[in-house]
């Protein structure tokens, strides 16, 4: 099983490997349009209060994606979250 955006936790940085081929065309196109292209790097910024959707930082902007869609985005982990909350 490939790692997907779904598996990442807040603070993780990852590179997009691709969008799952089984994803319906309209969803895939939408994800591509928003910049979730092969090779792009993203960082998980936070999750909504109920854990879903997830907010990522991508190409210098913030994007919210539902966990169901996040499962379609295959990634490779670049940098694990350091578990230190840097709030200040």
């Amino acid at each position: 099983m490939r790692k997907t955006l779904f598996d990442l936790i807040t603070g993780d940085t990852a590179r997009i490997v691709g969008i799952n081929r089984k994803t319906p065309a309209c969803v895939r196109m939408r994800l591509l349009d928003m910049g979730l292209t092969k090779g792009a790097t993203l960082r998980v910024e936070r999750h909504a209060p109920l854990g879903d959707p997830v907010e990522i930082l991508l190409k210098g902007y913030r994007l919210a994606i539902r966990m169901t869609e996040a499962r379609n985005i295959e990634v490779e982990l670049l940098e694990k979250a350091d578990y230190v909350i840097t709030s200040s």
Binding site: M34, E55, Y61, L63, R66, T68, E69
Partner: peptide, 11 residues
């Protein structure tokens, strides 16, 4: 089925 939800969070 439900719609994909992909939304920009503008600054």
């Amino acid at each position: 089925p439900q719609t994909p939800f992909v939304m920009e969070l503008p600054p």
